[in-house]
Amino acid sequence: MTATGYPAIDRREFLVGALTVGVMAALPGVALAQAAGDPASEAVRRLMVLSTQSALTRLSQTNGFINSVVARFGLPVLFTKGAAAGTGVLAQSAFRMQLIQRLNQFAEAGARGAVPAMAEAARKLPITDAAAILRGRPTAATSALRLEMGSGLVNALRTPLEQALTAAQDPTVAQAIAALPGVTLSDVAHAIALSADNGIWYEIGADEADIRANPATANDPALSAALAAARPAIQPPVPQP
């Protein structure tokens, strides 16, 4: 859960939801033309776009990753494997903590750069059973989008990350690279993207759950109506004899 008070999302629940939606997405006969004329499909698409943009916008702010319980990441594998990682500055706890902070801060640039690709993926995603997603788990739409994108988020993060690293010429990152023969800024960008990937999806899932719990916060009447219609009807109490 983030520090912003979103409902807690159990990670096992998130993954189970992803697998469930994956089975639905594998069914044949899905066409974007059909989805475009289906209000439920459009509601799912809006839910995806809003939760994605909200999460990435928050993470792209100063210390967005560091302040997030689910998106903050530790030292990427690139800096922990091999003989070189166990000696010199990379073996020093204080330097490792400083490097973790800097890499999380660079991830903010990746989040900013990934917004267009994520929004485009949400708009183009074939939706097999929109009603099932609307009635589904709190992260059902996020799970569907993640399964469709595969490694797409990592790819969307890499270019803006490499650009930010190149422009900054950060001394902490430079020291870490100097300790690892053959490692480049491109390798560092990839390592950050891989480390940030899971946390970003959990952050998006938390936003989806928040929108579902409080539809009015989305400021989208059609989406609010679709979510309300998908909720099970409250049965009146049974009269006692």
Rank of each mutant, 00 (worst) to 15 (best):
L147H: 12
R72G: 11
S195E: 02
P236G: 11
R46L: 12
G199Y: 09
A193G: 02
R137F: 07
P28Q: 11
A206D: 07
E162S: 04
Q163P: 07
G5M: 02
S186H: 06
T52S: 11
F14Y: 11
L19K: 06
R231L: 11
E162H: 03
A176S: 04
Y6K: 14
A43I: 08
A176H: 02
L19I: 08
L27H: 05
M24D: 14
M24Y: 13
G113D: 00
P116T: 08
A141I: 10
A141Y: 07
A109F: 00
R72N: 13
T2E: 11
S51N: 13
I9H: 04
D187N: 03
N67G: 14
S41I: 00
F106V: 00
K81A: 15
A168L: 00
L78G: 01
M149W: 02
I204L: 10
A178C: 03
W201G: 04
V188M: 00
L125F: 05
A131Y: 12
R96S: 01
I66Y: 11
A84G: 12
N198A: 14
P232R: 10
A109V: 01
A191N: 02
P28T: 09
W201R: 01
A109D: 01
D129K: 08
L223K: 03
T80I: 10
E13H: 11
G199P: 07
V238K: 12
V115T: 10
V21G: 09
A176G: 03
T172V: 04
L185T: 03
A225T: 04
A156M: 06
T2Y: 08
G64M: 06
L19Y: 11
G86P: 05
A132K: 05
L125I: 10
A83P: 15
I211M: 05
Q163V: 07
Q34F: 12
A107K: 09
R112H: 14
L19P: 04
R96Q: 03
A85G: 07
A130T: 06
Q240N: 15
R102V: 05
T62L: 10
A206N: 10
A218K: 02
M118C: 10
G74F: 03
P171E: 02
Q175K: 12
I211Y: 07
A191I: 01
A130P: 01
S195M: 03
V173D: 07
A213K: 09
P232I: 10
R158V: 03
M24P: 12
R135P: 05
E148S: 15
I177A: 07
N219C: 09
V23H: 12
G64K: 06
A18W: 15
W201P: 00
P241T: 06
Q240L: 15
D10S: 06
E120H: 13
I204S: 04
P39N: 02
A206I: 07
L59A: 08
A164S: 03
R231A: 08
A85H: 07
Q92I: 15
V16G: 09
L145T: 02
D170S: 05
Q105D: 04
H190V: 14
G64H: 06
I234E: 15
K124L: 12
